[in-house]
Design a protein around this nucleic acid. Structure first.
Length: 494
RNA sequence: GGCGGCAUAGCCAAGUGGUAAGGCGGAGGUCUGCAAAACCUCUAUUCCCCAGUUCGAAUCUGGGUGCCGCCUCCA
């Protein structure tokens, strides 16, 4: 089944056909680092991370580029207010953003170009646009002439005439058309500026993404993404200037826009002052919880933010993590017991109905998951499939006690496969399940000590010394370690 | 005023013509020294409202209503 994607440009779902077979090129509009990153910024990052991981899972070689707008009015304003250097500010907040993405388990983009480092590409593009008659110079400013691009409005469905009627701000009299936008802004005193054929100045907002995406991904790259709030004017303008520049549409093949994070029915944004900084949130919630919260709805839907929603996500996430722990426990105890690690038998070869059912359910959850992701990256449907798989695995575990030796023999490879699939879907693609493959020395010691305490407590329990057993459990509880007794033995979790 | 989107249980949320996934919460049960976890059963005769198309609509069409985003910096 081919991947289907909803394209903002055509307003319908269409089959995804990459520009270059086997390769996917993606440009995601990044942030303007002038203040703390908030949860709203994490939304597209998490979504694109899942999309990217899924495409890689499907065998594509993915190239993902995300920019930093490290020079703009807001950063300059901030610098003037604090007396700090413009680039120190943008550098610091860009780093904070990257740290937060790392903490969220978002794989790094292949490239994070910064406007300030791309001035030559930008001025070259502006020059070409002037040469082709798509832009004009006024007092050191350069404007794009929207009437020179007949298709202006094709992304957002806007008509130039209507836009003109709806202009809310006083229009700069020097512009030929009210919707003309700045490609280059003449420098004001005290602002960072670069030399250009039109005098000292700096790039306008929209031109950077065109220049950088064309430079690093080439014309006609596969996906251009960002929040829906960027459709107009930002992405509309990108299309206008890029396609005017190259003369070879499309600039980007498919436009994906994610819904916005809302707080009390208003979007979360820095300007509204209702944002939840990522840094603090990551102290309170594991990355997997935040990711599950974001990925359990479709990327195009708006997402309501509240602590309760995150708490709900936490409980669901804990169930997934418990399933991982269950699997690990079961596998290691069986492996210790010396069950031979045979090849995975075919479905027909499996005698035990319980084992066969598990094998079937693993396969069906896996295909449901993949089908959901192929259908416009429906992570909500995919997480549903993951939860179904968790239930299958946990339910199977409850039946393991009455399996015969021979059934266990067949079961081990099936169970290993279940674990691998669960890890691949929930961990590898959605990034919900952390894979602690190499615990640190301190962690290993902690584990060993906990195992010891659990063993001591078990001896007390064997003697029906409930007082000692309960004492150990409750004291560990105070330290944040939860003990759970099961027919398979006692498990602990932090 | 223009453009775009959304409306599914107590809450969150999939589902684009064939008879309502999944999560959280709630009720009951199994297991268990207790606790917890896990599992099982139940929890929307119905998808904002009205009309229409159809053998059949949450899904398509028309008309309402409500909410959100954009038209100014924004992920």
């Amino acid at each position: 089944m081919a991947i289907q994607v909803y394209n903002t440009l055509t307003r319908k779902k269409e089959p995804f056909v990459p520009r270059d077979p086997g390769h996917v090129s993606i440009y995601v509009c990044g942030i303007t680092p002038y203040d703390q990153s908030h949860l709203g910024h994490a939304v597209p990052s998490i979504i694109w991370d899942a999309i990217r991981r899924f495409l890689e899972f499907k065998g594509y070689k993915v190239r993902l580029v995300q920019n930093f707008t490290d020079i703009d009015d807001k950063i300059i304003a901030r610098a003037q207010a604090t007396g700090e250097d413009v680039f120190e500010i943008s550098q610091r907040y860009a780093q904070e953003y990257l740290d937060a993405m790392d903490a969220l388990g978002v794989k790094r983009a292949d490239l994070y170009p910064r406007v300030s480092q791309e001035i030559p590409a930008i001025t070259a593009m502006v020059q070409e646009l002037i040469k082709k008659g798509h832009a004009y110079v006024v007092d050191g400013d350069v404007y794009f002439d929207v009437t020179s691009f007949p298709e202006y409005g094709k992304l957002s469905g806007q008509q130039l005439e209507e836009l003109e009627a709806g202009v809310r701000l006083s229009v700069d009299e020097r512009k030929r058309h009210p919707m003309d936008f700045a490609l280059w802004k003449a420098a004001k005193p005290g602002e960072p500026a670069w030399d250009s054929p039109w005098g000292k100045g700096r790039p306008g907002w929209h031109i950077e993404c065109s220049a950088m995406s064309l430079k690093y991904l080439g014309n006609g790259f596969d996906f251009h993404g960002g929040g829906v709030d960027l459709v107009f004017p930002h992405h509309e303008n990108e299309i206008a200037q890029s396609e005017s520049y190259t003369g070879e549409p499309p600039f980007a093949r498919c436009w994906l826009h994610n819904g916005l994070l809302q707080v009390k029915d208003e979007k979360m944004s820095k300007s509204l002052g209702n944002f939840t900084p990522l840094a603090g949130l990551l102290d309170k919630y594991p990355a997997g919880v935040i990711r599950l919260y974001v990925l359990s709805s479709h990327y195009r839907s708006p997402l309501q933010y509240s602590e309760e929603k995150l708490e709900e996500a936490r409980r669901g996430w804990e169930r997934l993590m418990d399933t991982v722990a269950n699997l690990k426990y079961l596998l290691s105890s069986w492996e210790k017991a010396g069950s031979p690690g045979a090849d995975r038998p075919s479905l027909e070869e499996i005698e035990s109905p319980a084992v066969r059912q598990l094998a079937e359910e693993v396969e069906s959850s896996r295909s449901k998951f993949i089908a959901a992701m192929e259908d416009d990256f429906n992570t909500a449907g995919a997480t549903a499939a993951l939860f179904e798989l968790a239930r299958s695995i946990n339910a199977f575990q409850g039946q393991t006690a009455n399996l015969t030796d021979r059934e266990r023999q067949q079961c081990l490879p099936v169970l290993r496969e279940a674990a691998a699939v669960f890890q691949q879907l929930g961990g590898g693609i959605l990034g919900l399940i952390e894979d602690k493959s190499s615990p640190s020395g301190a962690e290993q010691l902690t584990e060993a000590l906990l195992e010891l305490l659990v063993e001591v407590r078990q001896r007390a329990r064997d003697k029906k010394d409930w007082a000692t057993a309960d004492y150990i459990r409750s004291e560990l509880g105070k330290l944040g370690v939860k003990l759970e007794d099961s027919p398979l033995g006692t498990r602990w979790k932090l």
